[in-house]
Each structure stands twice: as structure tokens, then as C-alpha cells.
Amino acid sequence: MPTITLSGRQFEVDEDGFIQDPAQWDDAVANGLAAGEGITALTEDHWKVIRYLHSYYTEFGSAPMIRKLCKETGFNLKTIYQLFPTGPAKGACKLAGLPKPTGCV
């Protein structure tokens, strides 16, 4: 299993760089992973998405429906793609410490 080091801490990640243990996640992880997803600096808008994703995951054990994410954060899908160029299921979930959503998406 590959690992990455973010601000001095080691994390196990999968082949696509998603951290394996969501419990290890904190803001530093999001900050550390941002550059790799084509984001220069995390703004308040980014954090809104990231925090919503993380708290939803903590409560329900999976990522929320994309439409629900849009509604709850008030951003439309286009804005989310502007914030996270690799998309809600990749960049946003990765920064929020979720496992990569896979299936038929």
C-alpha cells in the first residue's frame, strides 16, 4: 500500500491518492492534498464543500448524492467543478478524506 507524507505525518493512500483511514483526516490533510487536485489555495468555498462532505460521511458512511451536495452547499455543479477541477467525486472527496466513490460513476 503506498503512503504519502503530509506535514510530517504518514498516511496510507490507495492508488489514486485517497487516504485509507478517514479517521486520520484533518484540515492539514485537505491542505496537503489540494495542490495535487489543481487547487492553489483552499478558500472558504472549498472548505464549505469539504466540511459538508466530511460530516456527511461521518454520519452516513458514504458520500452524499451530488445533487444534495450542491443543494446543501448552495453551489451548482459548475461552481463545484470550478472549485475542484477534478470534480466532486474525485477532488472534493479526496480532500475531505473520503474513500474514492467507485461504482458506475
Binding site: 454520519e59 452516513f60 458512511g61 458514504s62 452524499p64 448524492m65 445533487r67 444534495k68 443543494k71 466513490p101 467507485t102 461504482g103 458506475c104 460513476v105
Partner: peptide, 15 residues
Amino acid sequence: NMGIPEAAWRDSCEF
């Protein structure tokens, strides 16, 4: 396939 647990499934349907 997505690994959506029952709670999230219900939440999404309600949404």
C-alpha cells in the same frame, strides 16, 4: 456497487 449504506440510501431517497 457504490457502497451506499442503508442510512444514506434512505437519506438520499428522502432528499
